[in-house]
């Protein structure tokens, strides 16, 4: 990263901090959504982008994280600041179980991806039958009062949620940037590029892959807790569904897998695209269910076909934010 990039980042940061002062509630909700996907995408990117382990079941961690925190809050009155720890612990345990089984039994690539889907689906059906969380009927939090801020229970106006997810997304960016420059970052990339060679250079690949899974699932669990308290309602059918996993990973893939800013850029592009299409269709007066998603799919197809490495690497070079060689 060069000076130009640093200055741009600084300006962006200030703009994001001041956003609630100018934005109406619609814009604020869009920005919150973008930051949510940027955060969750960053979490997925740790596992796939850095370490090369393709997970298609990250909805598992969003769902379990959300349900644990929400369940504790609804049934036992335990606020999210305590609940998040249990959510994280449980998701890390789940992630490590999947990782342990897969890595020990030599399951990789497509098979690993399918194993992650299988666990997410398994859990979805499990929650459909779990009465403590309301089963398929869903689990509901009391909607927050818009004018009072209750930090302890994480209830308040939209701007509070905005700042919370902004802090999370920024924290994730800082964490990932640090990780990438640390020993873990080097080891993960080596494993991603060639696992056999990495191991011959003294890397205990099993242990470092497990670390990537643990960090990724922990971050995604936090995203799940945020989801629960922001949206106030949880249904297994929605939160564990494979389309939720796909939503999470679209951002990093569109933005650029393995890059730091890819997940953020991808989240912006996808959210703006989805909302833009909705607005456009509403303006034209077309109301056919599904037409929005068709457009969405077509644009997605175009991006994947013509920008195989994602938008960020190309954009960053065009804007002069990275040096031409070694440009990552």
């Amino acid at each position: 990263m060069n000076r130009r990039a640093l200055v741009s980042l600084l300006i962006l940061g200030v703009a994001l901090l001041l956003l609630p002062l100018f934005a109406n509630s619609y814009l604020l909700s869009v920005a919150t959504l973008i930051l949510f996907f940027a955060f969750a995408g960053q979490a997925w990117n740790v596992m796939m982008g850095f370490c090369g382990q393709l997970s298609l079941g990250h909805s598992l961690y969003v769902g379990v994280g959300a349900y644990v925190a929400a369940g504790l809050f609804v049934h036992l009155g335990i606020g999210p600041w305590a609940g998040v720890w249990l959510a994280v612990a449980l998701c890390v345990a789940l992630g490590c179980t999947i990782g342990f089984l897969a890595f020990r039994f030599g399951i990789s690539g497509v098979y690993f991806a399918l194993l992650t889907i299988a666990f997410a689906e398994f859990t979805r059906i499990g929650f459909d039958h779990l009465q403590w969380t309301g089963g398929p009927g869903g689990l509901f939090l009391k909607v927050a009062q818009r004018d009072t801020i209750d930090i302890a229970n994480f209830r308040g106006p939209p701007a509070m949620y905005y700042y919370a997810i902004l802090a999370l997304a920024a924290g994730a960016l800082a964490l990932c940037s640090w990780l990438l420059k640390s020993r873990a970052g080097f080891y993960w990339q080596a494993i991603r590029e060639n696992e056999e060679a990495a191991q011959a250079l003294g890397i205990n690949t099993f242990r470092w892959k497990m670390l990537a899974v643990a960090i990724s699932s922990a971050m995604t669990a936090v995203a799940g807790v945020f989801y629960a308290f922001y949206y106030n309602n949880l249904f297994p059918e929605q939160i564990f569904h494979i389309s939720r996993s796909i939503e999470i990973i679209l951002g990093p893939i569109i933005g650029g897998v393995g890059t730091l800013f890819g997940p953020i850029l991808g989240a912006v592009v996808l959210t703006v695209l989805a909302d833009g299409i909705t607005e456009l269709l509403a303006a034209v007066g077309v109301e056919v269910p599904g037409i929005k998603q068709v457009f969405y799919g077509i644009v997605l197809l175009m991006v994947i076909m013509f920008l195989p490495n994602g938008i960020w690497p190309t954009l960053a070079r065009k804007l002069g934010l990275v040096h031409a060689e070694g440009g990552k």
Partner: peptide
Amino acid sequence: RPEHSQFMLLVAVAIIMVNVLLM
């Protein structure tokens, strides 16, 4: 191309298919 790239391509195709049917 890498697996995740193939995956996204076919997911995009699948999204289009489902929603055309819905339409």
